[in-house]
């Protein structure tokens, strides 16, 4: 579905991403891991049209994604930022209906279709009971779910997330990640940048390992989240273990050694 070919990008004249290629298929959960400043976020910014790449190709179902205008791009790519507080007490309904921005006309009339789609997004994340609540007063995890619902209301092909769980507590991280995993099982594609290899192990179908603006490994979490790769990109000691949970499920974890 999404094909990124030899993407080179950066800020002003400085190249940060040196020729990165990967694909995201429909319903696939792709994670990018790498140390701070290796260019993970830069890749996302290019996909979202926030900065222009120096070179390379980005196609979505064969269509050039780099020449799309803002409105068109927003119908295909939705961005889920880290939950943060806007200056005004919008309600959850106010926030989620904003996801219809790339579809409303000049007069900003909200059609019944827009409302239904936004409501389905709320319901998909089981937060329709929060609709009348004030967004700024919700917990971080709930705010994050609202932002995911807003992104779903954009009816995108791909959800793009930049460390969505960075400011969430343990339980809320789990809540958000399991919801994201559920969405990919329903056919949504996700591209997520994460700091935590465990998150990639928990939910990714494919992991891109980045170092200094280049991909050094691409594959399933089991293939590429290895002791060697993690120690190389994070420059630290790591222990990888396969463990069996209380429910009898086998999972892999990465443990940092202090």
């Amino acid at each position: 579905m999404l094909e990124v070919k030899d993407l080179r990008a950066g800020y002003y004249k400085k190249e940060v991403v040196h020729g990165v290629s990967f694909t995201v298929e429909r319903g696939e959960f792709v994670c990018i891991i790498g140390s701070n400043g290796c260019g993970k976020t830069t890749i996302l910014k290019n996909l979202l049209g926030l900065i222009k790449p120096f070179g390379g190709q980005v196609t979505l179902d064969g269509k050039d994604a780099l020449t799309m205008n803002d409105r068109e791009r927003a119908q295909h790519f939705a961005y889920i930022p880290q939950a943060h507080t806007p200056p005004f007490p919008f309600t959850v309904a106010d926030v989620v209906i904003m996801g219809r921005t790339p579809y409303v006309n000049r007069m900003a009339t909200v059609s019944e279709k827009d409302k239904t789609i936004a409501f389905r997004a709320l319901r998909q994340l089981s937060i329709d009971h929060l609709a009348d609540h004030v967004y700024t007063k919700l917990s971080g995890g709930q705010q994050q779910l609202v932002l995911i619902a807003r992104a779903l209301a954009q009816q995108p092909d791909l959800l793009v997330m930049d460390e969505p769980t960075a400011s969430l507590d343990f339980g809320n991280q789990q809540l958000v990640l399991s919801q994201m995993k559920k969405l990919t099982q329903q056919g949504m594609s996700v591209l997520m940048v994460t700091h935590d290899p465990d998150h990639a192990l928990f939910c990714a179908d494919k992991v891109l390992v980045m170092e200094n603006g280049r991909l050094i490994a691409t594959g399933t979490p089991a293939e590429v989240i290895t002791k060697e790769n993690l120690e190389r990109i994070y420059d630290s000691k790591v222990c990888i273990r396969d463990i069996v949970t209380d429910e009898g499920e086998q999972v892999r974890v990465a443990i940092p050694l202090l």
Binding site: L50, H84, M98, T101, P102, Q154
Partner: peptide, 18 residues
């Protein structure tokens, strides 16, 4: 409508097609 979205910040507004 755009003012609503813009109060969430520049990058978010752009990613929503503004």
């Amino acid at each position: 409508w755009k003012l609503n979205v813009l109060s969430f910040g520049d990058e978010e507004a752009r990613s929503m097609g503004i």
